[in-house]
């Protein structure tokens, strides 16, 4: 059987990759995709801890399902915002969205 820490390492690496994508990409859709990667890293951790520590209850899987729901809501609203901004400004580069910038 695979020890728990290996799943945690995969989750940590996935989360770090997502952090880099959010901070470094210019395209807003790419930033959204990186956020999905980070949510997936969290889900790996939730399910791994559930499997190894409390497999008799359903708490870990239930939390993972709520993370799914939040991810769907976030993707839907985020993409709608991006499409609306693209209509107005013909750009989805995060640096171009500077109307509210001081």
């Amino acid at each position: 059987m695979i020890p728990l820490w290996m799943f945690l390492v995969v989750g940590a690496a996935l989360f770090a990759i997502g952090v880099f994508g959010v901070l470094a990409r210019r395209n807003a859709i790419a930033i959204l995709m990186s956020i999905e990667l980070m949510l997936n890293a969290v889900n790996i951790n939730l399910v791994a801890f559930w499997r190894y520590l409390t497999p008799e209850t359903m708490s870990g899987q239930a939390f993972a399902i709520f993370v799914f729901v939040v991810a769907v809501a976030e993707a839907a609203v985020g993409l709608a915002l991006i499409v609306a901004i693209y209509r107005r400004r013909q750009s989805v580069v995060a640096e171009d969205m500077n109307v509210l910038k001081w």
Binding site: A24, I29, L79, I82, S91, A94, E95
Partner: peptide
């Protein structure tokens, strides 16, 4: 849900914002 829903939604987003697909500068 993720592969069939969110990823397809994102691909729609990519296609709706065409002209942004191939950027000369990827990173800020």
């Amino acid at each position: 849900l993720y592969m069939g829903g969110i990823a397809i939604l994102i691909i729609f987003g990519v296609m709706l914002t065409r002209g942004m697909v191939q950027a000369r500068q990827v990173m800020n």
